[in-house]
């Protein structure tokens, strides 16, 4: 019996300790990135390149998805609202859902799969082809030169992309609600304006996306840096970035929402 119990503990414990070790390593890694972030600030060109890589290249998928999400929201919302004769509140529904939840969360999920995976793959490839080791041997710290700029580039891009997602979504809702379903344009905007609070809704949404940006950027650079230096290792790491990011985003979203909108 004790033998079986020990085996049970091992079965339970091994994955758990593995995860804990990884989490601890990720925390240490974050501190190391922060310590080596000075170079990123003194050489904005490195940062610009990463904002281009993570942010600019994600604009298309973010805005197109935002537009469609907004249009679907408007169609679905209209159908439900008109049963209560409240179809004029469509603007409120679209704007609140987007600004509070969908913009930050769906934007972050898309960002993780577009930019996060690309960051992981790029770092993993640099490791596999010994580019990081070569840099180290040239007495250039890859943490400062490669990892930190990517990390900050991701963090800076995320809130801007989330705002674009929300804006495009609201525009999509406007297209469907006003142009297609014939709601009154004035009341669409004014009702929306009356119900959406800048500090409570918009700013909180942005705060959320900043947190998501930090989480995605850290996961992406960490998985890339930690990837086994093989083709298989890099592909697994890329998948893991997307999966882990998605889980962390949703868990973080729950926690942040519970803090922000409690009792309102």
């Amino acid at each position: 019996m004790p033998d079986q119990f020990r085996r049970f503990c091992q079965w339970l414990g091994a994955p758990l300790t593995d995860r804990l070790i990884k989490l601890g390593f990720a925390c240490r890694f974050l501190l190391a990135i922060l310590r080596h972030s000075a170079v990123t600030l003194t050489r904005p060109r490195l940062l610009l390149r990463e904002i281009w890589f993570a942010g600019v290249l994600s604009v298309l998928i973010i805005s197109v998805s935002g537009l469609f999400v907004g249009m679907v929201l408007a169609l679905q919302g209209y159908d439900t609202l008109q049963r209560f004769g409240a179809s004029s509140s469509l603007g409120i529904l679209v704007a609140l859902s987007l600004v509070r939840e969908l913009g930050p969360v769906v934007g972050a999920l898309l960002f993780a799969s577009r930019a996060g995976s690309a960051i992981t793959a790029e770092i993993g490839l640099m490791k596999t082809t010994e580019q990081l080791a070569a840099m180290e041997m040239m007495a250039v710290n890859p943490l400062a030169r490669v990892i930190a700029p990517k990390f900050w580039g991701g963090i800076i891009s995320m809130p801007l992309l989330a705002a674009m997602f929300s804006a495009m979504g609201i525009f999509g809702g406007y297209l469907i609600g006003v142009q297609l379903l014939g709601l009154d344009e004035g009341s669409f905007w004014s009702q929306m304006q009356g119900a959406v609070d800048f500090r409570l809704d918009v700013v909180n949404g942005i705060i959320k996306s900043v947190f998501f940006g930090i989480a995605i950027a850290l996961i992406a650079v960490f998985e890339g840096y930690d990837a086994p230096p093989t083709a298989e290792g890099v592909s697994t790491a890329t998948t893991r970035t997307v999966v882990t990011s998605a889980l962390v985003i949703l868990a973080l979203d729950f926690i942040l929402t519970a803090f922000m909108f409690r009792g309102v």
């Binding site: 600004v99 801007l160 705002a163 674009m164 804006a167 905007w189 929306m192 304006q193 959406v196 942005i206």
Partner: peptide, 16 residues
């Protein structure tokens, strides 16, 4: 574009 989106959210979509 990012800041334009933020301004849109601040001025057109919401009120203080």
């Amino acid at each position: 574009a990012g800041f334009a989106a933020l301004m849109f959210l601040a001025l057109k979509v919401s009120t203080l």
